[in-house]
Simulated scan of single mutants.
Amino acid sequence: MFSRKREPKHVRAADAPPSKALADSLAADGEGPAPEFGPWDARYAPDGVQRLDLGSLQIPAVEGVEVRVQANPDGGVEQIVLVDGESALQLGVFAAPRTEGIWDEVRAEIAEAMASDGVTPREITGRYGTELAARVNTPDGPADVRFVGVDGPRWMVRALFQGAAASGPAREGVLGEVLGGLVVVRDNEPRPVREPLPLRLPKEMAEQAQGQGA
């Protein structure tokens, strides 16, 4: 549902207003106020918060939330899923332009992919702007999903809520706290728009995983 096959392009500032994260970042460059909530660009991340450091993405420790990470043998993280009871949150972080958002375009492509599968998505308004919600068919039967995108300076976070939290922002619970406390650490490497930013297990976790594999 997140195609990279199309000719790269992105939403221009004249096409749609930037997300709050991106707008606040641009304002702060001109000595404006820092963002009120995350996902945070690393320069605005609050101090004194315990986080799981996965490289380009840091996940705050929130009581009751289980972090499930799928990694390759080299320690590269391929999937991040957070679980709270009957709700789940899958996270991804991607390269984006410095001053222009890509979520509007990505959201349109997700909706198009859903429609081609016979699913009718709907747009709803949440804390971060326009979201995409739908009921999809799974091996276990129909299930609700909800996509949330947050444009930041040179990055975009894509969040996929599943289970109870997918029914709407009011049902996010602690998973919403995690999303609002994420920290994105964007390196200085030039990267194609939409390329996944590098994610790696912390050294201790990587060594433990290698030991279990052996």
Results as ranks from 00 to 15, higher is better:
165 A>G: 01
151 D>M: 08
214 A>M: 14
64 G>W: 08
199 L>W: 01
47 D>F: 07
145 V>R: 04
60 P>A: 09
69 V>N: 04
26 L>E: 04
141 G>C: 11
78 E>A: 10
176 G>E: 01
113 A>G: 12
193 V>D: 11
187 D>I: 12
150 V>S: 04
153 P>Y: 04
26 L>D: 00
158 R>C: 06
192 P>G: 02
136 V>A: 07
86 E>T: 14
56 S>W: 06
57 L>A: 04
101 G>L: 05
85 G>F: 09
180 G>P: 05
141 G>T: 10
152 G>Q: 06
101 G>F: 03
30 G>M: 09
120 T>M: 09
167 S>K: 03
79 Q>A: 14
35 P>S: 04
197 L>M: 10
210 Q>T: 09
143 A>V: 07
116 S>N: 12
194 R>C: 00
109 E>H: 06
13 A>W: 03
148 V>Y: 07
181 G>A: 05
142 P>I: 05
1 M>T: 11
124 I>L: 10
67 V>N: 13
198 P>N: 02
109 E>C: 00
7 E>W: 00
169 P>R: 14
1 M>D: 13
151 D>T: 03
53 D>K: 11
58 Q>P: 12
159 A>P: 13
175 L>M: 03
138 T>V: 13
156 M>F: 06
185 V>P: 00
24 D>G: 03
22 L>P: 04
23 A>F: 09
